[in-house]
Nucleic acid binder design. Structure first.
Lengths: 217, 217
DNA sequence: TGGTCGCTCCCCCTATTGTGGTATTTCTTA
DNA sequence: TAAGAAATACCACAATAGGGGGAGCGACCA
């Protein structure tokens, strides 16, 4: 079985040591280091080469958010699992922007801690239901900038636009979509009519400004 | 103990019935209805008054995404838990935008189904780790406001780009800027070289995605 | 005072797009 | 079963954009 290497950054001595023993006491896990702050994080991570980092959000010196930012900029492959006692919305937002891979509460049970670490290691993003809800709310708030008008674009037409905003020519789109050049042109004509534009730049501009497509960017 | 009322929209008969019996067989839960599509969702929900809706994403007729949108617009207080076999990125995004409160995979165990329903009912947003990761990635992708590269565009070049994103042709730009058509072309050539693109759509796309022209935002 | 930069303008030729058609197939639905 | 929507494909001609040049003029700067 693989061994998952975990580093801990947590200012509360009691919790830090508990986590240390929990991780080292679980088969398949080893704790490469447990630190009260992340002021020397770069050095420590270089030395320890952890796979996963457990990061407290409230810490003296560099706080957890700054810590994640620093760590992800130097070690993008490391997964950082944030832990907090709060549900604070701004912190969640900042942590996500900083590159955290998961977000759990300190009230989490030991077994769940281990599951969460394993999950992060395997490319998941564990988070409690209530935190996930906040993330979704942030997302929904951020997206619905304006009630986007419905131009009744068909799925194929949206696909064409997707390629268009990638800067592809009709010829390239035809190849990418596996249809003929002339069909691409037909779709574009229909799109122009629906969007009330008459050039590809206008279409791309409209699509990007009005966020007509899901995240293709 | 409270009773959580659950409605099911799922086209697969076998799964639909399994879920029906699972929910009705669990103390504290009752299934108010199990339907193969959500074409009559509004009527059925009005009649059944469920607290939580289990919604399949792939369905004939109105699909799950459209279903959520419809349901949340009429019954904003109802929590919708999406279930899918896929990890499709666009679907996840669309479901979130449509107002889904959670997103689980069909491979979920019965016990986890029940936990997820309870979680949604209590204001959480259960989702599997891998789906949560996708949500975070979408979020992070959407944010990156900063880190904008400096392409060393001259003021005149920026002006050209402004007209470009308005969908103007070279000819129209020439007129608007009071310079000749050929000069516009020269500027565009220089812009393309600086942005490393080779078409107007690519340039517009790059400008809007990287928010190179702050004036618009 | 020569060099670089930004802005201006022009030519030639090719490639790509825009516009107007027509037409077949498949699938859904009234 | 007929109507409609969606996707497919083709043709012809005009318009626009892209790539390669060259070149003049004023400003600024070492």
């Amino acid at each position: 079985m693989e061994n998952i290497r975990v580093a801990i950054f947590e200012d509360n001595k009691h919790l830090r040591e508990s986590l240390y023993y929990l991780i080292n006491g679980t088969p398949g896990f080893s704790c490469t280091g447990a630190y009260p702050d992340c002021n020397d994080a770069v050095f420590q991570i270089t030395k320890d080469t952890p796979d996963v980092i457990l990061m407290d959000i409230e810490m003296p010196g560099l706080n957890g958010i700054q810590g994640v930012k620093l760590i992800k900029s130097k070690f993008p492959q490391v997964h950082v699992l944030m832990q907090t006692i709060f549900h604070d919305e701004n912190n969640i937002f900042d942590a996500i922007c900083a590159g955290a891979s998961g977000y759990i509460l300190k009230s989490t049970t030991p077994a769940e801690y281990i599951t969460a670490i394993k999950d992060v290691y395997n490319g998941g993003s564990p988070m409690t239901g209530s935190i996930a809800r906040k993330v979704l709310e942030l997302f929904q708030k951020n997206i619905q900038v304006e009630a986007k008008q419905d131009y009744q674009l068909t799925p194929k037409e949206k696909e064409m636009l997707q390629f268009m905003v990638q800067g592809k020519s009709f010829k390239m789109i035809a190849e990418a979509a596996g249809i003929s050049y002339e069909t691409v042109r037909t779709h574009m004509k229909n799109i122009y009519a629906k969007l009330h534009v008459n050039s590809n730049t206008e279409a791309v501009s409209k699509v990007l400004k009005e966020k007509l497509l899901s995240i293709f960017f």
